[in-house]
């Protein structure tokens, strides 16, 4: 029995090496670059930045689902972002100084417009969309806009047994 347990354990732990990233699709390095990029699109102020609100979680999860079709674009685009960054300041985007990051992202937006527009759209979705998909942590963006969440709606008091309710 101990043997089978050990086999089972090995069989289950064994799959961890397949992906040592803490993300479902992205590698740790890709996620860092994407976070740096998303944080230029929605930076931190009194309210969280894109990555602080879970936008990378959102995009990573969707790349396992409906956005499977964008996997190649993300892998290529993130690589391009890091290349631009290396050319500008010698390090990957996540390691670049904050002032440099904006320049890198502006250059990316110009040269890889399609990729940048896609990331912008997905970042906005993750930040302003429903929290259930991994972004908009605790509905923080909705509260930022002054929306009550969950909204309060009382129960209507009516009596259908008497025809029209009261």
């Amino acid at each position: 029995m101990a043997g089978t347990a050990a086999t089972g354990a090995v069989c289950i732990t064994g799959c961890s090496w397949r992906n040592s990233s803490r993300w479902e699709f992205l590698s740790n390095a890709q996620a860092e670059t994407l976070a740096a990029l998303a944080d230029q699109i929605i930076p931190e102020d009194d309210f969280p930045s894109a990555s602080q609100a879970g936008v990378v979680v959102y995009i990573d999860r969707q790349l396992m689902g409906p956005y499977r079709r964008h996997r190649g674009a993300y892998q290529g685009g993130i690589e391009s972002a890091d290349q631009i960054s290396r050319k500008f300041c010698g390090v990957a985007l996540a390691q670049a100084r904050p002032t440099m990051r904006q320049e890198v992202v502006s250059a990316l937006a110009e040269r890889f417009r399609e990729f940048f527009e896609m990331v912008r759209e997905h970042t906005m979705e993750g930040y302003y969309g429903s929290p259930r998909h991994g972004g908009n942590r605790d509905a923080v963006s909705w509260r930022m806009l002054g929306l009550k969440e969950p909204p309060l709606r009382g129960r209507a008091h009516y009596d259908l047994s008497k025809g029209r309710g009261s």
Partner: peptide
Amino acid sequence: AGAIGGATYYYTSQRGAGCAGCHEMA
């Protein structure tokens, strides 16, 4: 039996640290 035994061992290890090994549970 192997899977269950393995999972039991795995889950109960170190207050659930084993659970975190599967990245979806982390």
